[in-house]
Simulated scan of single mutants.
Amino acid sequence: MKRVQLRPALTKLLCAGVAVLSMTAAAGAMEDESAAVAEAGLAPLVKRLREEKKLVGLAAMVMVDGKVVDQAADGERKQGSGVLVTTSDRWHLGSITKSITSTLIGRLVEAGKLDWDTTIGDALAGQPIHDDWRGVTLTQLLTHTAGAPANFPMLVKLKNPAEGQPRVDARREAVLGVIAKPPLTPPGEAFAYSNVGYTIAGVMAEQATGKPWEDLVRQEVFAPLKLDQAGFGPPKSPAKGYDQPRGHVTRLGFKVAMGDDADNTPIMGPAGTACMTLDELCCYANEHLRGEQGGGKLLSAETYRRLHEPALDDYACGWVARAEADGVPACRWHNGSNTMWYAFVAFIPTNNMVVAITANDGDIRAAEDAALQVLKASQSLAPASKTSQP
């Protein structure tokens, strides 16, 4: 299995200026696109953006009031294969997994197995932990304010432990290797995006329950929401038929398809290895949308609001808070990439809307720009009574 580094593909973190300028400078064009989407739907926009951004495959779906109102897909599952992507394909979500881990933690908190203020010292008592890590809480880990490094050392990234106890043991060993040394910054004082921090939170969940993180996600998130096709790692896509998309990278100007097992080490699964269909991603985000309004299936409204309340730098527990701007009402969003795939999801309470965009292409900036344009144009699909609300 090929190992790659999970990139925090957050617009706010990597290229905030580019994101703001791209949505503002093209305001007139975006208004035209919104009108075009209102008249002809997403398909022409998705096709144009995929071709313009030179992405292998691009797909989008919009849900309003819990129902899909439009969807579109364009491009190939594998470059040059002639096999087309569809809106029912499965897509690697990258760091959108972080909100799934946070949702799992919320379930364990409500079940009394953890607390938001549970510390690393509590969860890993008796282990060789640096004193500065002992008081770090779950909340700090989930909001990237724990002082954890961005990623694990290369030797950890190269490991591929089998699911089950071998992976639990390897994940715990990797975490203990980090917390034996002091945090990079004083906990609670600075925002620093960290895949390691979410992996530590996953280990704390495993320690509290005696179950692997993967099994906990299946039991506490996927099964209750009936996300039957959701899983971990890239979707399996045999060369005979290419039943699902393959991830791609750009090398020397050419798109290169990766194997259907190419991903980050599963040790850091809690930070970014989930996979599901667009419909499932929309249903998952809609659960968060409804949950904050008191209609969630998994958690209380209070817990959902806690997950969505930003700490430092507009980052909540696996969600980024975005204020109303450029024709898009205030929303919560996240994106992700393992450098071979890209995914974006946002839920917009004002419109009762969820927007999800995926690409089987690791060109993050191109995919991200396409996602932002789809997000803006898709607002024309909301009922007029909702978009006109103050």
Rank of each mutant, 00 (worst) to 15 (best):
K297V: 06
T250C: 10
M268I: 15
K255S: 14
A271P: 04
P234A: 08
G269N: 09
M258P: 06
E302G: 09
A316P: 03
A285G: 01
T273K: 11
G253I: 06
D243Y: 11
L298N: 05
T273M: 15
D313W: 12
M258H: 07
E309Q: 08
F232W: 09
L227Y: 05
P245N: 05
P310Q: 04
A274K: 05
Q293L: 12
L298A: 00
K240V: 12
D260H: 11
C317G: 02
A223C: 00
N264G: 12
C275M: 14
F254Y: 09
D263G: 14
S300P: 04
P266D: 08
P270W: 04
A239Y: 02
S237Q: 03
K255L: 15
T265L: 05
E302A: 15
P234N: 08
A311P: 04
A230E: 00
H308K: 15
K236S: 10
E302T: 13
R246N: 08
Q244W: 00
G247L: 14
V249M: 11
L281E: 15
K236E: 14
D314N: 15
G295C: 04
V256L: 09
G247Y: 09
P310H: 02
G253D: 09
D279V: 03
C282Y: 07
A271H: 02
Q293P: 03
M258D: 10
W319Y: 12
F254C: 03
L289S: 15
E292F: 11
T250Y: 09
R251Y: 08
D263V: 06
L227G: 06
F254I: 11
G241E: 06
T265D: 08
V256D: 05
G296L: 07
E280A: 14
K240S: 13
P224L: 02
W319I: 11
D314Q: 14
R290V: 13
L299W: 10
C317V: 02
P245V: 05
G269E: 13
V256R: 08
L298R: 05
G247F: 07
R290M: 15
E292A: 15
P245R: 05
Y304E: 10
L312D: 10
A271N: 06
P238L: 07
H308M: 13
P270I: 05
I267Q: 12
G259K: 05
Y304F: 14
L299K: 04
W319E: 06
G269M: 14
L307C: 10
G231Q: 04
V249H: 10
P245Q: 01
D263C: 14
M276Y: 14
G269V: 11
F232S: 03
R290T: 15
A223W: 04
A271S: 13
L299P: 01
G259F: 07
G269K: 04
Y304G: 11
D228S: 06
T303P: 13
T250N: 12
F222P: 09
T273P: 05
G247V: 09
D263K: 15
G295T: 00
G241K: 00
G318V: 00
K297T: 02
M276S: 03
H288D: 10
L281G: 14
G295L: 10
L299Q: 05
P235M: 04
A271C: 11
Y242K: 02
F222Q: 01
E292N: 12
D279S: 09
V256H: 07
I267P: 14
G318A: 13
A262W: 03
A311E: 02
E309C: 08
T303S: 13
E280P: 07
L252M: 04
G318R: 12
